[in-house]
Amino acid sequence: MPLLWLGLLLAATLGMEQLEGVLRLIEPDSREVIYRRDTFLALLVQHVMVVLVASLLAVAIGVGAAIAVTRPAGRDFRPLVGQLASIGQTFPPVAVLALAVPVLGFGTLPIIMALLLYGLLPIVRNTLAGIEGIDPAVHEAARGMGMTGVQVLRQVELPLAAPVILAGIRTSVTINIATAAIGATVGASNLGDPIISGIVNGNTAYVVQGAVLIGLLAISVDSLFERFMPRLAPR
């Protein structure tokens, strides 16, 4: 199934010109119905790179923070970490962009910051749920075998919590693929470009092109997670 969605994504990315007749039905009065300011392949690559960088940062920070507050020395900070992660997702990405642009300037950095904050909550929550959901008897057995705290984390807690953590990462990445489109409003070139251009110029065909490619990308990535998560999770 992932190959099917990836094939459709690639076909739509490289063969958008072949759909001009269909798009002309959507915008019969427009002189131009195919977005041509940049190639769709370049926009797709830039979109994927932005989401990838933001997601890697979110995973590193989210998983790291959740692990830290499940250790004895960090338990007092658990409510704070949960609240900060919740605020990050409830704070509108557009507002993050508005605040980040004066500091970081126009381009890719503001949208990476917005996606990072927006993608933390599911990762933090799932990591906490995965680690705290482990049977206390398992911890006692590990300590009884003479394992250190680091060994318990690496060899017991993280492997057992992996399916739940990966589910949170899957949710975070999928959400960010769609959210990344707003980066086009601050000069970050990605698949949001045709959508914003279509809205500004009243060209629905442009909007459809960007939306279809983003949708296919989100489905492709989600199907890849669905396919490979069982292999990543320990038996």
Rank of each mutant, 00 (worst) to 15 (best):
Ala181His: 04
Asp193Leu: 15
Ile199Asn: 10
Asn176Thr: 04
Ser172Tyr: 06
Thr185His: 09
Ile165Gly: 02
Ile219Met: 09
Val221Tyr: 04
Ile214Phe: 01
Thr174Trp: 05
Ser223Ile: 06
Ala211Lys: 06
Leu216Thr: 06
Ile196Glu: 11
Ile195Ala: 00
Leu191Phe: 03
Ala211Gln: 09
Val164Thr: 13
Gln209Ser: 06
Ile177Ser: 05
Ser223Val: 14
Ala167Phe: 00
Arg170Ser: 08
Ser189Val: 14
Thr204Ser: 13
Ala211Leu: 09
Val186Pro: 06
Ala211Asn: 09
Leu191Asp: 00
Thr174Asp: 04
Leu213Ala: 10
Ile199Trp: 06
Asn203Cys: 11
Pro194Ser: 00
Ala188Leu: 05
Thr179Pro: 07
Ala167Pro: 10
Gly187Asp: 07
Ala167Ser: 15
Val212Met: 06
Val186His: 03
Thr179His: 03
Gly192Arg: 00
Pro194Ile: 04
Val164Lys: 00
Gly198Ala: 15
Ile169Cys: 07
Ala188Val: 06
Asp193Pro: 00
Ile165Met: 10
Gly202Ile: 14
Ser172Pro: 10
Ser197Leu: 06
Ala205Ser: 15
Leu213Gly: 10
Ser223Glu: 12
Val164Gly: 09
Val186Asn: 11
Ser172His: 03
Val208Arg: 04
Asp193Ala: 14
Ile219Ser: 01
Leu166Ala: 13
Thr171Ser: 06
Ser189Asp: 03
Asn176Leu: 03
Ala218Thr: 13
Gly198Ser: 13
Ser197Thr: 14
Gln209Phe: 09
Tyr206Asp: 07
Asn201Glu: 07
Gly198His: 04
Ser223Lys: 08
Ala205Met: 11
Leu160Cys: 02
Leu166Asp: 09
Leu213His: 04
Ala205Asp: 04
Ser223Gly: 01
Ile195Asn: 02
Ile175His: 08
Pro159Tyr: 11
Gly202His: 04
Pro163Ala: 14
Asn201Pro: 01
Ile214Gly: 01
Thr174Ile: 07
Gly215Arg: 02
Gly215Asn: 03
Ser197Met: 09
Thr174Glu: 07
Ser220Ile: 07
Ala211Met: 14
Val164Ile: 15
Arg170Ala: 05
Leu217Trp: 00
Val208Ile: 15
Tyr206Lys: 02
Thr185Lys: 14
Asp193Asn: 11
Ile182Ala: 07
Val200Lys: 13
Ile214Asp: 01
Pro159Leu: 11
Pro159Phe: 09
Gly192Lys: 00
Gly198Glu: 07
Pro163Asn: 11
Leu191Pro: 02
Ala188Gly: 05
Val207Ser: 01
Leu160Lys: 03
Ala181Gln: 08
Gly198Tyr: 10
Ser172Val: 01
Val221Cys: 07
Tyr206Cys: 09
Arg170Gln: 14
Val200Ala: 14
Ser223His: 05
Ile214Leu: 12
Ile219Asn: 00
Gly210Cys: 06
Val221Gly: 12
Ser197Asp: 15
Val186Cys: 12
Leu216Ile: 12
Ile165Tyr: 05
Val208Lys: 10
Asn190Val: 05
Thr174Arg: 08
Val173Ile: 09
Asn176Ile: 01
Ile182Lys: 03
Asn201Gln: 12
Ile169Tyr: 11
Asn201His: 11
Ser172Met: 03
Val164Met: 09
Asn190Arg: 01
Ile195Cys: 03
Val173Gly: 04
Ala181Val: 11
Gln209Pro: 04
Ala167Gln: 15
Ser197His: 10
Ala167Met: 11
Ile165Leu: 05
Ser197Glu: 15
Asp193Arg: 08
Gly168Leu: 08
Thr185Tyr: 07
Ile175Asn: 10
Val221Pro: 08
Ile182Phe: 04
